[in-house]
Design a binder for these strands. Structure first.
Lengths: 295, 295
DNA sequence: AATAAAACTAGACTAACAGTATAAAGAAAT
DNA sequence: ATTTCTTTATACTGTTAGTCTAGTTTTATT
């Protein structure tokens, strides 16, 4: 990411945390970032867009952290899932984001609304798939029902906990509470009744086709090419990844491992952002491949 | 309620529905209500306060409607509860309030936040008590857990339904879905494990003591006295209520019936608002008495 | 090194807005 | 009849988002 843009985002984030979103004026951001107004509007067309950029970064951070947590562990390990769920709350806490998110939840800005809906559905997909991995493929048709119920419990519990016991960190306990309830639900009525929610519903409302595997691959290669320059020591990684993706059956295990190393390698460098992006693309690819092979 | 105040609230509500909360300026409200700026600030110190007044009215409307639905029915009738839950969604729909509520959910205004928290906790209390009535007093210690889970499911489902199938009215189906899940949860694990949430937690965070029965009675009498003027035909009702409340053991069944008739009687008159308020106070009183007698 | 293109700065400017203040007209109460 | 409260109309202050322009600095290209 561009240095100025990063500078703006950092400043904005500091201020949003400190003063809240709506009490932070654009002028405040200009002062904090020590840039001119024109520069700001060169990168963002509004405060909302700046906010979206921040939220996107955080979202990538969450995905990244979840990958690390899962690495090397069994996919049906419930405690891994619990830890992965906790990531969102911890990162929110770290960035004091709760307030930010809710600021934005009720915005009347169409773009922002669409952006949040999209993030929400991505989370929903992820939860549904993880539940399937943990409780078995037989819950398949009900996995979205369960995902919605689970997210409902977690969010509601978080809301209440935050207001009743803001001092103590109850994140773990709260997630465990929600997990107990959802697993109790799943165990007693798996396969019973019809699903109320279906995967297809979400594609429709997101207005996106699930991208094909080939499209995903191409996006990864493209992004890699953008950063693939001789002077970087990670050059071999990039070459390998691109090569591997061309294969008939890319060895996903290898790729997963490479991305993990790579994302540590570039931590703090200029490429961090792009690698994070490419890595989250790759993760989706890997997920999809695994699912395909299960069927 | 004062005529000018009502005029302002009506205008504001129309505009909030039409244009959204944050896109409605105070000037817009002045134009719509055909009043001067000074008048507005005479009644509300900000747009937020005006909004709170609107939300409060709606909240009373919901309580009122729920009372009507329950009247004469068994307290453990699940379908009554389903209908009562639907009230909130239908009224929200009627006033196009979904947007309004979420607009406000993330506000950084302290007062507004406190106001919403309070409304939320009142809803939570109500749900917890209704669940106890429906599924038996033995779920007692867990009733807040269940209430939170239930509200979580309902809200999440509503959020998703609104985005996936905004055209069809799925309110009933969605509530039934949530009810099925919560009753399945309750039946399979009632009495098992410790409660995660407790009634006391909410008193603490609301910074309110649960008002004593006497305080409730007093509030009712006071409000009644404010409207108890000779020229109103409902004079006998008021006198009777006040008298009945003085008794050692007020006959709650009588009072409930009187309030029901009374609230119909004053519909559309100048006293409607006050009666609604007094009626919701009385309802809490009646609830409390019934609970006391069960123990 | 010269030049062209871009990114950036500083600040002026407009328009919308919240909220305060005031003076005068009108209504209600005593 | 007089006082008190409410309402109006309008002016004023101060803040904000966003546009625009003219000039400067940085970066890439030849």
């Amino acid at each position: 990411m561009n240095q100025k843009k990063k500078q703006i985002i950092d400043a904005a984030q500091r201020l949003f945390i400190k003063k809240g979103f709506s009490s932070t004026s654009i002028q405040d951001i200009l002062d904090e970032a020590e840039i001119a107004k024109g520069t700001f509007y060169n990168y963002f067309s509004s405060k909302n867009e700046c906010l979206m950029a921040i939220l996107e970064l955080i979202s990538e951070e969450i995905i990244q952290e979840r990958i690390h947590l899962a690495y090397g562990k069994e996919r049906d390990d419930e405690s891994v899932f619990a830890a992965q769920m906790a990531v969102r709350f911890n990162i929110d806490k770290k960035h004091n984001l709760m307030a930010l998110f809710s600021t934005v939840r009720g915005s009347e800005d169409k773009d922002l609304q669409a952006f949040l809906d999209k993030q929400y559905v991505m989370e929903l997909h992820w939860v549904a798939n993880r539940l399937k991995e943990i409780y078995g493929q037989e819950i398949d048709s009900l996995s979205y029902d369960y995902a919605i119920i689970f997210l409902g419990i977690v969010q509601q519990a978080a809301y209440v906990v935050k207001r009743t016991k803001p001092s103590i960190d109850q994140t773990e306990a709260m997630i465990q509470f929600s997990l107990n309830r959802i697993s109790s639900l799943i165990e007693t009525q798996s396969g019973v009744g019809n699903a109320f929610f279906h995967e297809e519903d979400f594609y429709k409302f997101l207005n996106v086709e699930e991208p094909s595997l080939d499209v995903l691959k191409q996006q990864i290669v493209e992004t890699l090419n953008e950063i693939n320059e001789a002077r970087f020591p990670e050059k071999e990684y990039y070459a390998f990844i691109i090569e591997e993706l061309q294969r008939e059956k890319p060895r996903m295990v290898l790729l997963e491992s490479i991305f993990l190393t790579l994302s540590k390698e570039v931590e703090g460098t200029i490429n961090e952002g792009k690698i994070r992006k490419v890595s989250s693309l790759a993760w989706r690819l890997i997920e999809r491949e695994k699912r395909k092979r299960l069927k």
